[in-house]
Simulated assay, not measured.
Amino acid sequence: MNILIVEDEKHNALRLQQLVTELADEYHIAGMVGSVEETVNWIKNNAKPDVALMDIRLSDGLSFDVFRQINVSFPIIFTTAYDEYAIRAFKVNSLDYLLKPIQKEELAAALKKCNPSTLQPTVEQLLELINSKSKLYRKRFLLPAFDGFKTVNSEDILFVYFESKSTKLMLKSGHKEVVPYSLDELEEELDPDDFFRANRQFIVHVNSIERILNSFNGKLKVVLKRHPEKELLVSKEKAVKFKEWLNQ
């Protein structure tokens, strides 16, 4: 089986590649692309794969834009950290819908569905699938301490930031904790109702925001409670989603 991976985050793409190759010798990676434009070009210039593992949010838009630009005649297994696109996903040759972080067993089950007799899911099947895959977000961290371990609750985090080659949690107590995760990983694991990836260096909790100011070139400047010294800018591209997140 030849499999196309469509994923804009490099570590997620490599993880999918590893999972696929571990599952079965007959599974082969036909290609790896990370944007709508690259996906369209790849489909135009390569033999049709048996299935694509496709993230929904890509570097230059939503993967649904691919289907507006080109006919896609092979099945899709969507992979995403969000379930808000599920109904749209099942309108475009979708076999399954996997929530990140992708579990090996779920991926194996999804790939086994790839056969010519596979039927488009009914609405009832779709709703059952969505309900069965309600994502559980990280509630706490287990971290090493001087004499053993300690726990930090996610609800006690003001913001997460990357500094000096380390990912750090800034807590409501004023303490900082270093964690062995990337911001990309924590973006997927923390509840998006409470946390927002503001930029490459920051993930902010909704209750950590003191005020929001207009900045240059359509950007927003976020002033953080208790830490106004931290320079936090939201790009023009993310500003709309950021305001929608705050207004929900």
Rank of each mutant, 00 (worst) to 15 (best):
Q17G: 12
L95Q: 10
E185M: 07
D194F: 14
D65I: 05
E177K: 06
N214H: 13
S73L: 11
A108R: 00
D194S: 13
R88W: 01
H28L: 05
D50Y: 07
L126R: 10
H28R: 09
N93T: 05
E9P: 10
R200Q: 14
D96E: 14
K241Y: 12
D156M: 03
K176A: 06
F162T: 14
K230E: 15
L4T: 09
H205Y: 07
E187P: 03
S166C: 05
Q18R: 06
A109L: 02
E106R: 04
N41E: 13
Q201E: 15
R226V: 13
N217D: 13
M1D: 01
Q17V: 01
S63D: 11
L23K: 01
E177F: 03
K139F: 01
L136T: 15
K168R: 13
Q248D: 12
I70Q: 06
Y82E: 00
A108V: 00
A89P: 04
N45S: 15
E244C: 09
L16F: 02
F146W: 03
R197Y: 11
V223E: 12
K221V: 03
N131R: 15
I77T: 00
V6H: 09
D147K: 11
P116R: 08
L158C: 09
V160K: 02
V92G: 05
S73T: 14
N207F: 08
T39N: 06
E185D: 11
D55M: 07
R211E: 15
T80D: 01
L129Y: 05
Q248V: 10
P180W: 00
L98G: 10
L98K: 04
V178Y: 00
E155A: 10
D55P: 03
N214E: 14
L16I: 00
K236T: 11
S235V: 12
E155D: 12
S63V: 11
F242A: 04
K133W: 02
I87S: 07
K48R: 14
V204E: 10
D55V: 03
V92Q: 06
I102G: 04
L95G: 10
R68K: 15
A52L: 08
Q125V: 09
R140F: 12
F146D: 11
Q103N: 01
E189L: 15
V72G: 01
N131I: 07
F202M: 10
F74S: 04
T21W: 05
K236Y: 13
R200C: 11
L126Q: 14
A109N: 06
S94E: 10
P121K: 09
S94M: 11
N41Q: 14
P75W: 06
K10A: 15
K113C: 00
D184A: 11
S73P: 00
E84T: 08
N2F: 06
R200Y: 12
L58V: 10
F78Q: 07
Q201D: 14
F146L: 11
E26W: 03
I56C: 02
L129E: 10
E188T: 13
S73C: 08
V51Q: 03
D156T: 07
K165Y: 09
Y181D: 03
I76D: 03
K236R: 15
Q17E: 13
E124G: 10
L143T: 12
Q69S: 04
I70W: 06
Q18W: 00
V222L: 12
A89N: 04
D191L: 04
